[in-house]
Every structure is written in C-alpha cells, then in structure tokens.
Design a protein around this nucleic acid. Structure first.
Lengths: 368, 368
DNA sequence: GTGAAAGCGCTAACAA
DNA sequence: TTGTTAGCGCTTTCAC
C-alpha cells in the first residue's frame, strides 16, 4: 500500500505523509482541519507539500469521498455560443454566477447544444460532476433535460418546463404579463394583432404557425406568452383564431426583421406586432424603419424582457429582472440539498410604456 | 464486498452488477464500451439500471479512476457578475464555450472574485475538478492565479499576464495596436494626449496616475496599451512624461464618463482622449455629449476592442476578435494535455476609423 | 494530537 | 464475451 519512493510521479497526500512519516490523516488535517494538529506540524506538512509540488488534496478524490462536487451545472438548450449573444440569458447567467460565487461553488456549463443523439446527450450530462442542476429555458422534451432528471439531483428550472414535479421553479407570469400588454394594445383600438415568436419546437419550422403547432409547443414560455395574447383577445370579444403567429427558430434581430415582414405579408390588416422577446422586437423595429413604416403611428411593436437595448430604444415591453431570476435559481439549487421541499417562485414583471405602441392607423401600413 | 441488498440507497454500478449476477466490468462496459458485450446483455443491464434509478457511472468516481475531469476551468478576476457585463469578456466566453462544447467538455466558472483571503482563494481553486485552466485578464499577482499554477495543470493565459513560463498564451499586440492608434492621432496634429485606463493594480486607486504606478502596473494589457501611446509620442518627438493618465477601478461606462472629466480637468490643453477599452470610451463620449463638447471637432476620443456598441456608435477604435480569442484559448487547453509544448498565439487587430477622431481644434475645449 | 482501517464508485489490465 | 484483481486519492470513524 505504501509506495515509499517512486520518483517521477505527482505527489499525493499519501506520498507526503510517507515522506514525513506521519499518517495520511495528519496531512489531510493540515488542509481541512488546521485546528486538529499543532501549528508546527502543520507548517512542516505544508512545507513538504510545497517542496514536492503538491497542490493540496485532489478535488476529484475528495469529491468522491465527501459526495459533494462543489459545483452546480447549468443546462442551456441553445448552443452555448448562441446563448451568449442573448442579453436576457446573459443577465440570468450573471445572477446565477453571483449566487454561486457567494457560496463558493463553481458553475459548470454543460456542453449541451451541439448536434448530438440522445445517447451522447445523456453521456454529456452524466459526465458532469455537480451537486445539482439549473435548467434554463429548454424544451420540455429536451433529451438533455431527460438526462438531467435521471441524475436524481436537485433541479431548478427556469421559465420552462413546468411538467417536472421534482424540480423547483423560478418563473414569472408570462401569460398574465403578455395578456396585459395585449389588452393595452386592444384598448387603444387594435384588432388585427400578430405575434412574432421564437421557436415552438426543437425542429426548425420558420413561418406562419398553423393552429395545431401552437397547442403542441414544447416551449412553455412561448406558449404562455401567445396564450396571453389570445386571452386578451377573448376578453375583448375578438376571435383568437384570427391571430397571426410567425415563428422563427433563431433568436436574433435578423429573425425579428424577417418575421415582421412575413407577418405583414400574411395579414395586411395587421396594426400591431407583439413580439415574444425584445430581440425579435428590435428586429421588427428595424424592419419598419427600412420599410418606411412609422412606429407607432402606422404600426405598433412590443417586446418582452426589458433588455437594455430595448429600454434604450424606448420599446414598449414587459420588464422582468432576469438577473434576479438567476440569483434566485442559484440560491434555490444551493439550498435544495438540505431541505427536501421543492419551491416555486414567481417573480414580478412590469409593463414598460415606451414609444413604440400607440393607436392603430386608419389605414394599415403599405409594404414597400 | 458485495452488498447484495440494502434497500434505501442509491444504486451503484456494483449493486446493479450484483442484482444481475454479472461482474462490474460488464455493467461498466454496458455504458462505456457497448461493443464489448452482447446487445441483449447490455439491454438487460440498462433495463435494470432504469428500474433502480441508476443514472450511469458516477462521474466523480469515473474521473478519479480515469484521471480526467471532462471540464476546463475558467478564471476571471472580476467578480463573475461584473464580467458578465463586459461585452468583450462575454465574447471571449462565447468563443471559449464554443470550443468546449465542440469537444464535449464542460466549462467550469471558478468562483473567484469574491472578497477572500489567499487561503480561501487557494481552496476555491483546489476544489475545481478540471483538466486545465484558462485564465482571462487577471493581475499578475492575483492570488487565484497563484493557486492555479500550483495545480500543475495545463494553463492558457489570455492577455495577461506574461510572466508564466509554463502557460500557453493567446494575445494580441496591445502595444503595437495602441501605438498605431496614437500615431494616427498625432499625425493629425494632436500633441496633448490623455489616456483613460482601467485599474492598474488590484487596489482601488481612481484618479490621475503618478509615474511610478504606471511602471508597477500588475495588469499587462493596460500597461502595454499605455506604453503604446508613449512609444508613439517618443517616435513623434513628444515627451511621453507629459502624458496624462487617468485610472478607474470599475470597468463601466460611468467610469469612462468621470475619467474623461478628470482628464480634461487635469490638463486643459488635452485634445484627445485615448481610452484603453471601448466601454470607457463610450463613457467619455457620453461626457462630451452632456458637456456640450463636440466630437471630433473639439475633442477626439478613441477606444479599444471593437465591441458592437462601439462600432454602432462609430467609435474610432482597435478591433480585435475576442470570440476567436476564446475559441483559440479553448483549443489550446484542450490539446495541451497531449503535446507538452506551450504555444503562444498572437491574433491580429485592425484599426477601425470611426467618426470620433479628427484633427485637434485651434482652441482646446472649454469645460462647462 | 495522531494513526489504522475501511471504503467512496469506478475502470483497466489481465485472465478465463 | 465475461469475470477477477487492484487500485485511483482521499476522508472518516474510532482507537490510541
């Protein structure tokens, strides 16, 4: 057991102990329980360690023994490099990172997102040495999510999906917020609304959304926000089935741009574009600008999230505190190891009345 | 050894093996080498696993055995939540994440940054179960960095610091790029330059920088960029000692704003503000705007990085591809385990001629 | 204050 | 194709 002298090998706790002719416990204590041994001995141990280039107890071995990884895993659907371009996701990440940092816990970004079959997806998730997972905005049929559930570790889901009983939840009232926004528009006289949304499923299906797909959407947030619009319509006595919905897979300003064009094409009477995210709304605004359509006199445009670019542009939107959401999610995973209870937190939202929504024009806008 | 039946306990590879009366190797193979056993047997194993709620081999135990963690660690000096507000850092992170994702490796954000003493810093780094580290823009006397070096794992340093022989390097020619920018300004007639820079040391020392501190700066990038300005001055026969340098600890637009005010206060003849980052430059521009100073006719302002906000504002700056830098860094750590060689890559930069630099005014700007 | 024993859960030779 | 044998490096009772 005691390998007393092997020259070219990384030092281990055992080798240091052997060199000093003390027990492994003592060396371990030197690092983990300084009060359990005399300062002099501790000093000797630390000296020997430094001499041998020993960096302290191997984190992996320690994790195995203590059954804690000292990190929590973050699952993002999108290819990571995509997520990093989404301001709302970044704010969330910032908040989450803050919680982890405060607790001295690492935050492991799970390499999900690349094209992988289910088996590989599972492998990637299985490989993660973490004490819990935070799942941000993934489809409810996401294979990575399925793999995460298999791990039987604490899970906190954000925004999506809601069909996981064992997971804690941090969310906002997407439907309510969007309903309020739509009602605001309707009260100003809009009757022909269109929604521009992000992907509704894991497959790329850009275009005008047929009714069936809406109900089948695997993205909770999108589904809810659209449902909010429909609820407002129903309340106002409008037929929700006449709502035009345009879907885009990529969550980019470009997508918003082309989606706006498509929505107006599909229904020329449209007077308001309700976008399910600010990024898309910014694209829609962009489209209006290059098409010579004045906002809001000829067309109203609204967003959702309250990212700084949108606020700067004075976009009418729903503000939410994505950073706080991240912080909450972090605290929840970090604490859920102790308490067995699964919490559900709903954070507030606020209607931001910008300059991009107003009464509808007498004539719908003409497209160039 | 074989604990055949213990009811309330998470299943392990051994328990599955025992239940099926096969060896542990077989179960292991079912996951790691499907070709090493018959499909039927494999199926039986997987079935039993599912039944018992076994998620597959414990990642920590596997890491211990295989000596690979399947993740690389990222060390950021700033409190994580700060870094997430820095567009250049985010681009870097996006690129790095992309490399990791492609390789199926996790990216662990080390919880550095919180106020911690050196011992705690070391502990946090020691705790990280990773196969290598990427160090982004930290001071060369950073305690976390010291702890990272102790780990004796592959290290890739970005931008800073250069005094680590065992680390691979990804950088740009900060000095050269800044020198070119300064020369450009000088050639247009500017003689009274000021530099607005980020923190030069780990302590907060906002204000006009005395000569000594400049030389002692622990932040390589800042030091180099300022040196670039001075080099251009020397080339042009200007006395580099008359250069005004204003330092700010926080890397924010606000900081840039106040730093600009201070620089102009300190030397009323100043006709050009060279900022070491775009974020600061945006703040300087902001200051000029609210002070009624026209840019560039009364004051020239330049940045560094080429973040999208800056390009949109048409700021005269140095563009670099932060995302590519991240990608490169990722590839380097991931490969440096094999090859023992330590590489050094220098990425190109490009002068972006925006609208914020022009010839100096006859009269220096008056401050409100 | 220090040591001995017993694994944490897994994989990698090597045999069978 | 499957099983046996040894640990990977560490922490943790429990004695001394």
């Amino acid at each position: 057991m005691a390998r007393s002298s092997e020259p070219r090998r990384q030092a281990t706790l055992a080798s240091i102990a052997a060199e000093l002719k003390v027990s492994r416990t003592t060396v371990s204590n030197a690092y983990n329980r300084p009060d359990q041994l005399s300062p002099e001995l501790r000093e000797r141990v630390l000296q020997a360690a430094k001499r041998r280039g020993y960096a302290g107890p191997d984190p992996v071995a320690r994790s195995l023994r203590t059954r804690k990884a000292g990190a929590i895993g973050l699952l993002l659907t999108e290819a990571l490099s995509y997520s990093f371009r989404d301001p709302a996701a970044m704010s969330f990440l910032a908040g989450l990172a803050e919680s982890c940092e405060a607790a001295g816990q690492g935050l492991l970004l799970i390499p999900a997102g690349a094209e992988r079959d289910d088996v590989q997806a599972a492998a990637v998730v299985q490989q993660a040495g973490v004490d819990g997972f935070v799942v941000y905005s993934v489809a409810d049929d996401d294979p990575y999510l399925a793999a995460v559930r298999e791990r039987h570790l604490p899970i906190v889901v954000c925004d999506q999906p809601r069909n996981i009983p064992e997971a804690a939840l941090v969310a906002i009232d997407d439907r309510g917020a969007m309903k309020m926004l739509a009602a605001h528009l309707i009260s100003q006289g809009h009757e022909h609304l269109a929604v521009l949304c992000m992907r509704l499923g894991r497959d790329r299906r850009d275009g005008v959304v047929p009714p069936g797909r809406l109900a089948d959407s695997h993205f909770h947030v999108q589904r809810e926000r659209i449902a909010g619009v429909q609820a407002a319509m129903i309340d106002a006595g409008l037929d929700p089935d006449i709502l035009t919905v345009v879907e885009r897979f990529d969550h980019t300003v470009r997508s918003g741009h082309s989606a706006a064009a498509q929505a107006l094409q599909a229904n020329r009477e449209t007077t308001a574009l309700l976008c399910t995210t600010d990024v898309i709304a910014l694209g829609a605004l962009n489209f209006a600008r290059v098409s010579g359509i004045d906002v809001p006199s000829q067309l109203s445009v609204t967003g959702f999230d309250g990212i700084s670019d949108a606020i700067r542009e004075n976009l009418t939107t729903v503000r939410q505190d994505a950073e706080e959401k991240g912080r909450r999610a972090g605290k929840l995973v970090l604490s859920s190891s102790h308490s067995g209870i699964v919490a559900a937190e709903t954070l507030p939202t606020e209607l931001f009345r910008g300059r991009t929504a107003g009464p509808p024009p007498k004539q719908p806008p003409a497209i160039a």
